[in-house]
């Protein structure tokens, strides 16, 4: 059962082709990883899918409906929610209120929204901080909040933009568990991630974006062996130099914590 169908979607910024005729589809219940070097166009693709940007060409269908020109709030109402790479909590609202805002999408009753928000805060592990202003949260906690808020909209498709960037391995392990649990409850997941360990562990399938183009798709294991992918991450020299050496630092074969330090700069 296809939940999301993307057909030849393109977007340019001035002379830069940020997303170049990207097509793919996503099955209900799947976890799809979206990887690619910095500036590959991953976030831009998210913005196109969720209505924050309008594509120049192409179509996007979600659960059978054409959502290509819909505004973000309407898309969210249909069951597709995204998080932001740079977290955007409502700073002066309490943690609980942050989640209540999202929960109010499915109910008009404050009390019901509040109950639901409390449950989700327990789920993401923020229940102890629910009455503090979001401004006081640490980065990992803000990421949890971002996830909790997205879940409060009761999505069918959850789109996560680097939720694990900047977390310690222990913290990102917790996130892995959370995402798996969400997926087991029937929520489809589309995941941008530089932390390769997470992508490998979670994804059923991986898409690779480079300079706005989809250059590879397939199982995580197959993708990391793909010549084009290796080139994209490590530059052509590495690809011609031979194989990806085991235990060598650097993506895509290895976990990186900080996406700022990914391959292109290492040449």
């Amino acid at each position: 059962m296809v939940i999301l169908q993307v057909e030849k979607v393109a977007k340019r910024f001035g002379g830069l082709l940020a997303v170049d005729d990207v097509s793919f589809s996503l099955d209900e219940g799947e976890i799809l990883g979206l990887i690619g070097p910095n500036g590959a166009g991953k976030t831009t693709l998210f913005n196109l899918l969720t209505g924050f940007l309008q594509p120049e060409s192409g179509r996007i269908h979600f659960r059978g409906a054409d959502i290509t020109r819909l505004p973000p709030h309407a898309i969210c109402r249909l069951g597709m929610v995204r998080t932001f790479q740079i977290v955007r909590p409502f700073l002066r609202l309490s943690v609980l209120e942050n989640v209540v805002v999202a929960a109010l999408l499915r109910t008009n009753a404050m009390a019901a929204a509040r109950r639901q928000a409390e449950d989700l805060l327990t789920f993401v592990g923020l229940e102890a901080r629910r009455h503090t202003p979001a401004a006081t949260l640490t980065l990992p906690d803000r990421k949890r909040l971002e996830l909790g808020r997205a879940l409060a909209t009761q999505p069918r498709l959850l789109m996560l933009d680097e939720v694990m960037a900047g977390l310690t391995p222990t913290e990102s392990d917790r996130f892995l568990g959370l995402i798996r649990q969400v997926n087991q409850r029937g929520v489809t997941v589309l995941l941008i991630e530089h932390v390769m360990r997470a992508v490998m562990a979670l994804s059923h399938r991986v898409l690779v974006l480079n300079y706005g183009e989809l250059i590879a798709a397939g199982s995580p294991a197959a993708v990391v062996r793909d010549r084009q992918v290796i080139e994209a991450y490590l530059g052509e020299d590495y690809a011609y130099a031979g194989t990806v050496r085991e235990g060598n630092p650097g993506p895509p074969g290895e976990p990186t914590q900080d996406h700022g330090a990914s391959a292109p700069e290492r040449r």
């Binding site: 969720t50 924050f52 505004p71 973000p72 709030h73 309407a74 969210c76 109402r77 929610v81 995204r82 998080t83 932001f84 955007r88 909590p89 409502f90 700073l91 002066r92 609202l93 805002v101 999202a102 999408l105 808020r149 997205a150 409060a152 909209t153």
Partner: peptide, 12 residues
């Protein structure tokens, strides 16, 4: 507090 974040959460 954040208009875009609100839109992403379904606020018209």
């Amino acid at each position: 507090e954040d208009e875009d974040a609100s839109r992403a959460l379904g606020v018209n």
